[in-house]
Each structure stands twice: as structure tokens, then as C-alpha cells.
Measured scan of single mutants.
Amino acid sequence: FDIYVVTADYLPLGAEQDAITLREGQYVEVLDAAHPLRWLVRTKPTKSSPSRQGWVSPAYLDRRL
């Protein structure tokens, strides 16, 4: 999967189903980028939180090589 970094805090609107909150600087794996406005991502697990999966706007993501 492609690795992206979150460029700004992402707080989903209440109406968005299956969306997750992301923090600036967080790394995520993009699982599904087929839709231009919503990408399915999975967060990297940390010592304090397990990995999470949900939909985010790709405008908040920047690809890492």
C-alpha cells in the first residue's frame, strides 16, 4: 500500500459515515483511492492506539516516497 502523511488535522463532519479523525504528521496507508473525494486509509498502530481504518479527504494527504 502507498504511504501518505497527513498535512493538517482532519476532523470529519458528523454526517460522514466511516470517517476517522487524523492528526497532522500522522502516517497512513491508502487502501482505496478509486473515489476522487474520499479515500479509504488505515492508520499505523502506536503503543497507545491500535490501527484504525476509515474514509478521509485526499486533500489532507501528501504522498511519501
Rank of each mutant, 00 (worst) to 15 (best):
Q53N: 05
A8T: 09
A59Q: 12
L13N: 14
A8K: 15
Y10N: 04
Q26H: 04
L11G: 08
W39P: 00
I20Y: 05
L37E: 15
S48T: 12
P45M: 07
I3A: 05
S48M: 12
E16I: 08
R23K: 13
T21Y: 13
K47H: 12
A19R: 08
L31E: 01
P12G: 07
G54R: 02
V28N: 00
S51F: 06
A15I: 12
K44L: 15
V30P: 00
T7K: 10
L61I: 04
D2L: 13
S49M: 12
L37F: 10
T21D: 10
G25C: 04
E29L: 09
V28M: 01
D32A: 05
L40I: 02
F1K: 08
S48C: 14
P50N: 06
L40F: 08
Y10I: 08
K47Q: 13
L13G: 13
R63W: 10
R63F: 15
G25E: 01
A15P: 12
E29Q: 09
V5C: 08
S48F: 12
T21G: 08
L11I: 15
Y10F: 10
V30N: 00
R52M: 14
W39Q: 00
V6Q: 00
I3D: 05
L31T: 02
A34P: 04
P50G: 08
L37D: 15
P12Q: 05
A59D: 13
A19W: 13
V5A: 04
Y4T: 02
I3Y: 10
V5T: 04
V41F: 01
R63D: 06
L13H: 13
T43S: 06
V5K: 06
T21C: 14
E29V: 10
A8H: 12
P36F: 04
H35A: 06
W39L: 01
I20E: 03
S51H: 04
Q17G: 12
L13F: 11
E16R: 06
Q53D: 07
H35M: 06
D32F: 07
I20C: 04
E16G: 11
D9S: 06
S48G: 14
Y4A: 07
L61H: 01
L40D: 00
Y10Q: 03
Q53A: 08
Y60T: 03
W55Q: 02
R38P: 00
W55D: 01
A8V: 09
L11T: 14
A8W: 05
L65N: 12
W39D: 01
V41A: 01
G25T: 02
P50A: 09
Y10L: 05
L22H: 01
H35T: 09
V5M: 09
Q26D: 14
A33Y: 11
T21R: 11
F1S: 08
R52L: 14
P45V: 07
S49T: 12
I20Q: 03
S48V: 10
R64F: 15
P58L: 02
D32S: 08
V41R: 00
R38I: 06
Y10M: 04
I3F: 08
H35C: 11
S48D: 15
R42N: 03
P36I: 05
L31Q: 02
Y10A: 04
D2S: 09
P36G: 06
Y4S: 02
K44Y: 15
V56G: 01
Y60G: 04
L11A: 10
L61F: 03
D9I: 03
Q53F: 08
R63S: 09
A15H: 15
V56P: 01
P12N: 07
E16C: 10
P36H: 07
D9E: 05
T46H: 07
S49N: 11
G14T: 12
W55Y: 10
P45S: 10
S51C: 08
Q26M: 12
H35F: 07
R42Y: 02
Y27W: 12
P50C: 08
R64V: 15
Q53I: 14
A59H: 10
F1E: 07
A34R: 15
Y4L: 03
D9N: 09
V28I: 05
V56S: 01
Y4H: 03
V6P: 00
A15L: 11
G54A: 05
R42Q: 07
L40E: 03
L22F: 04
K47C: 14
D62M: 14
Q26G: 03
L31Y: 02
G25L: 02
S51A: 12
W55K: 02
E29N: 04
D2M: 12
R23C: 13
L65K: 11
D2F: 13
A15G: 14
S48E: 14
P12T: 07
H35N: 15
T7C: 12
A59G: 07
Y60F: 11
D62P: 02
G54C: 05
T46P: 03
P36Y: 04
